[in-house]
Amino acid sequence: MSIVFDDVSVVYPNGTRGLDKVSLTIAAGEFVVVVGLSGAGKSTLIRTINGLVPVTSGSLSVGGTEVATARGRRLRRLRAEIGMIFQGFNLVSRRSVMGNVLTGRLHAQTMLRSAFGMHTKADKEIAFEALERVGIVEKAWVRASQLSGGQQQRVAIARALAQQPSVVLADEPVASLDPPTANLVMRDLQRINRDLGITTVVNLHFLDLARRYADRIIGMRAGQVVFDGPAADADDDVFERIYGRSLTAEDVSA
């Protein structure tokens, strides 16, 4: 599924401008990393794609469906197509890993089954396969709260995969992880993008991880896109444009 931003602005109720006239096209199957300082509008960009943040003006379509006007059932259908991964994993910590991954199948649940919270065999099979893909199937019946951060993020990835999505959005998925684990999770995302052809948009705080994994980098600052190009082009000049200062040793150590 492709994602097309056309002159999209987002103004929050308190008047903050989250996005400022953003126009972008992300092709189906691309692996895009969005970088920028904290407050640059990365989360806002990603959250408009699945309608968690409403668009104020402009038009945004995902796979041909207009997001801004989608409501109710149509919005849920769209969201079902888009898996999301969060910085804080956002698992229901008191439920089992399996219970969490199965929430990725909610969109496929019939009314009657949803009333009693029952899942079909087929759904459970999909959930198991998703867990196998991130290599954590042996923890299927463990409480989510008992896993390490890296394990929890993999469960979250499995939850997104269980949706069988066409798009995966990841909002700073490695910001709460130590560097080795962060690289493992990034590699998982990259591999899923390559194996399954899922369009992937990842927010990252730091440029060097972006350079390592992205096909394409989008740099943001104050709600605007200030760089858009292949990872190889993101040199020190670009860094200064995005972060407003030059590169220091600290920035590349991770």
Partner: peptide, 18 residues
């Protein structure tokens, strides 16, 4: 939980589902 299990080529030993 190693990355090796991620490449799930057919015929490769599957992780047991608990």
């Amino acid at each position: 939980m190693s990355l090796a299990t991620l490449e799930r080529a057919d015929g490769a030993p599957k992780q047991v589902r608990p």
